[in-house]
């Protein structure tokens, strides 16, 4: 709440105390300072442009040398001659593991946000929020180590159980449920994106007008009815945006996934079986042995990842921002 009022006063004030466009008073110090501030802002834009330009530029030679179809091929042999590589398997693994992570994480994250915003004692709220944020402070390499050494052992039983009871669902089928599967990777990713989804949802919930909350309580609603009728409709787009941001985060996550998955070539729709690869994990795993053409191929796959996450993130930001305009 304080930030919001702060934003408004600063924006209104900024417009008031200096007309936009007149950046300096003409003094030398002012001109230098205004110039360097603007320059820094432009550097940010330049970095974004340079990322796109250089990834494309360095990907082109490898793509030209590619004998297979870049989009549909499941192979990844850019070091061989003739080079053959395609992103089908990587795209499948990336989309499946991050969708799974989003599906697992979103309900829990929204539950956490509701807990902190409406159920926990007021005084503890920020402390509890801090605890959830600690999940975000754990580096991904540590999640990877934990996932590969500790969690995967315990996932074997879970995967077996899911396979025997829900095996009729194609994704959960297969003969040999394992522990280094896309499913395990999805669980690790879900844990990693919990904090971002819950913190954005929490922010949105805190923006729900107090009057709505009080009105529904005054009409005799239980706490759940109050949440269902005044909080959830208000926070809908915020929650959708938050889970999409989580999806984008999960897609780009590298090390944890690379450590959990065992590489088995080819698309396997049985998510409980060992194997699979994502864009990011493939880059991390094959970079050390990559030849010059191999590096180009990895850059090409990174470019695809960059574009996908960019689109997901921009869509998510747009959804979250739409809420703000209605307020």
């Amino acid at each position: 709440m304080t930030t919001q009022t702060g934003v408004e006063s600063a924006e209104a004030g900024g417009a008031r105390h200096r007309a936009p466009g007149r950046m300096s008073t003409g003094r030398l110090g002012d001109r230098i300072f205004a110039g360097s501030a603007t320059g820094s802002g432009l550097i940010v834009l330049a970095i974004m442009a340079a990322i796109a330009v250089f990834l494309v530029w360095k990907a082109i030679p490898a793509l030209q040398a590619n004998e297979a179809n870049f989009i549909t091929s499941e192979e990844w042999n850019p070091n061989a001659t003739p080079a053959e590589f395609g992103i089908a398997q990587l795209a499948f693994g990336t989309v499946m593991s991050s969708l799974l992570a989003m599906l697992l994480a979103t309900p829990v994250a929204i539950g956490i946000a509701l807990f902190i915003a409406f159920y926990s004692p007021r005084r503890l709220a920020s402390g509890l929020g801090y605890i959830v944020d600690l999940l975000a402070a754990v580096p991904s390499i540590v999640y990877g180590l934990w996932g590969a050494v500790f969690l995967s052992k315990h996932m074997e039983g879970v995967s077996g159980f899911l396979n025997s009871t829900l095996g009729w669902i194609p994704f959960l089928g297969g003969d040999s449920p394992g522990k280094n599967s896309i499913f395990t990777a999805g669980v690790v990713l879900a844990i990693m994106i919990l904090p971002i989804i819950s913190s954005i949802s929490r922010e949105v919930f805190l923006q729900v007008p107090q009057a709505h909350v009080e009105a529904s309580l005054a009409l005799g609603a239980t706490r759940w009815e109050m949440i269902r009728m005044s909080v959830l409709p208000y926070g809908q787009s915020g929650m959708i945006g938050a889970s999409m941001l989580g999806l984008g985060r999960a897609m780009g996550e590298t090390i944890a996934v690379a450590m959990v998955l065992t590489y088995v070539p080819g698309i396997n729709i049985h998510l409980l079986e060992d194997g699979g690869a994502t864009f990011a994990s493939n880059i991390a795993n094959s970079f050390a042995e990559a030849s010059e053409n191999g590096r180009g191929a990895l850059i090409a796959s990174g470019l695809v990842l960059f574009v996908i996450t960019l689109l997901v993130n921009m869509a998510a930001r747009a959804v979250v921002a739409r809420r703000k305009e209605f307020v």
Partner: peptide, 21 residues
């Protein structure tokens, strides 16, 4: 807007960019 977009860059892409440049 682009600062927001930049927060979402996968870390491996930042690495690839420095590699390429």
């Amino acid at each position: 807007f682009f600062v927001d977009v930049m927060t979402g860059i996968p870390s491996i892409v930042a690495g690839l960019f420095v590699l390429a440049l």
